[in-house]
Design a protein around this nucleic acid. Sequence first.
DNA 1: AATCGAAAGGTCAGGAAAGGTCAAAGCCAG
DNA 2: CTGGCTTTGACCTTTCCTGACCTTTCGATT
Lengths: 153, 153
Amino acid sequence: MGNLADYIESYLKRLLESAAEGVIEIQRRELAERFRCVPSQINYVLATRFTHDRGYIVETRRGGGGYIRILRLSFGSDQDLASLIQTEIGDDISARRADALLIRLEDEGLLNENDRAFVKAVLARETLRVHPSYRGVVRASLLKAMVMALLRQ
Amino acid sequence: MGNLADYIESYLKRLLESAAEGVIEIQRRELAERFRCVPSQINYVLATRFTHDRGYIVETRRGGGGYIRILRLSFGSDQDLASLIQTEIGDDISARRADALLIRLEDEGLLNENDRAFVKAVLARETLRVHPSYRGVVRASLLKAMVMALLRQ
DNA sequence: AATCGAAAGGTCAGGAAAGGTCAAAGCCAG
DNA sequence: CTGGCTTTGACCTTTCCTGACCTTTCGATT
């Protein structure tokens, strides 16, 4: 965790933590200055870390008085987690999206680092055994089953 | 026990011993330099000594600031349990045998009635989605993953 | 109202810095 | 002297970071 993108990511997440509404508004130029980097680095961080899959929505506005607004979507405790997981994962999921979901669950404090790594490793290994065209389906099954099993505790 | 791979293995294990969390993070290039070998030698050590079966999880990241993270699953004596589960279930299992195994685990007090029913239900539901000729394989994957997840607690 | 310039933010391609893969050569116990 | 671990090296993929150039918005000036 030693690169710039990681630092910027955790800075933004800290800001989000302390923001009551789960929304923050920043200026790209200002943030770039704080980290002494090029402004487009901020876009890189947003594009790779604050994706929809990981549970964020990013809105921006150009021009004078422009801004970048980052909104964190929460799973909310109201809904039945099982059906939420079901719809979130579906019947077929890519390795990338599976990973994003696991990171999101970790961010939400629903899984710890160990469990996340465990699930990821099992997915990688088990998925290798089946024919490539079935991997998405098998991955989805495994992911749902394991996440549900772990969340039951 | 005089070869390079063994030295690297024991070096990493020593690091893991002294790491509080059972997790270490290294750089492949740096480690290769320390042992004066090519970087791919590190991959060899990881692939042969730090396997899932032996209770390790390895996560890596490429690119600038990349790393290799080795995580030791510390479920003490359950380590044997993991490989036992593996050999017991194998790569392909029938619904009947899966059921029998679950009952046995319940009898042994490793799973409670609830968990057993849960696993059984998931197996039934998820295997339906895949082509019949793949069901045994998918069932085995799911079963292993879920049982391990549940037993980890 | 139309125009223009300044002040945002956006896009994209390229180079550098990791780590990954695979096959061939090397080594050694049996 | 052969089969199975080791070790190496050539080549590949992913991730990060920057810089050049583009688009949008706002407000002041005509």
